[in-house]
């Protein structure tokens, strides 16, 4: 089974070496690819200097386009599964294996969630997360405890779908849409680190607008999309 770690990186010069060296040294059973999303700092130079596996996007596409580039690479090279792993060091590599195990049980998507067994804190930041969870529960009748977690693993079928379609962003609204299409989505308890260096993309204003955009997308727009047919893996075999 070919396994790929996709590392979208936008201005992660301060973090990328630490993150990638850890993967190379301790998790060599996985292949990895960094997707430099048109960074304005030295992210690309650092990757080239270290001879990392790198997709260097000539322009900034945003997380959706960057992650999609990684999935296209995965499809091209015949990978069986791919996981999004943030370049800022918030995701912890020791959780990749349990997530992979869960995927091999026949799931299409497995989310590394912070709140399967842990309780979700009552902070402002988690208010948005609660709202999105509620929207997904309302439209799909499935509980996703940590919809905004970026640590998601996709199987081959999902790789092919994401690689070739518009509007497949690695975001909660796509997850809700895919659940409705019949994709099997599961969650695994993980913990995440606080970012050590650099700045987070999500500021307060951005968080609010993100919540609205994704919330409205889940509640109103996704049900109008034409459904992709996702057959059951076990039945096919």
């Amino acid at each position: 089974m070919k396994k790929l770690i996709i590392i979208p990186a936008y201005n992660e010069a301060l973090n990328i070496e630490r993150v990638v060296n850890n993967l190379i040294q301790n998790y060599s059973e996985y292949d990895y690819i960094i997707v430099n999303d048109g960074s304005t700092d030295h992210t690309a130079e650092i990757c080239r200097k270290n001879k990392y596996n790198l997709l260097d996007l000539p322009i900034n596409l945003g997380l959706t386009g960057a992650f999609q580039a990684g999935l296209k690479y995965a499809k091209r090279n015949g990978y069986d599964c791919a996981i999004q792993f943030d370049g800022d060091g918030q995701h912890r590599a020791e959780y990749i294996e349990p997530i992979l195990k869960e995927l091999q049980k026949g799931n299409n998507i497995v989310i590394g969630s912070r709140f399967v067994t842990e309780k979700k804190p009552h902070t402002m930041r988690m208010l948005g997360s609660r709202f999105i969870s509620f929207a997904i529960l309302l439209t799909t009748h499935k509980k996703i405890s940590d919809p905004t977690s970026g640590m998601r693993m996709f199987d081959k079928k999902m790789i092919n779908l994401f690689a070739s379609n518009l509007n497949f962003s690695p975001e909660p609204d796509t997850v809700s849409y895919l659940i409705k299409c019949g994709a099997k989505v599961s969650e695994i308890q993980t913990s995440m680190d606080e970012r050590i260096a650099g700045e987070s993309y999500l500021t307060f204003v951005r968080s609010i607008s993100y919540m609205f955009r994704v919330g409205i997308s889940i509640l109103l727009i996704q049900k109008f999309r034409k459904k992709e047919i996702i057959e059951d893996v076990e039945e096919v075999q």
Partner: peptide, 12 residues
């Protein structure tokens, strides 16, 4: 987007 992604894959 497709062009940018394609060019990065080719460059790699």
């Amino acid at each position: 987007e497709g062009l940018a992604q394609e060019s990065s894959i080719l460059e790699e």
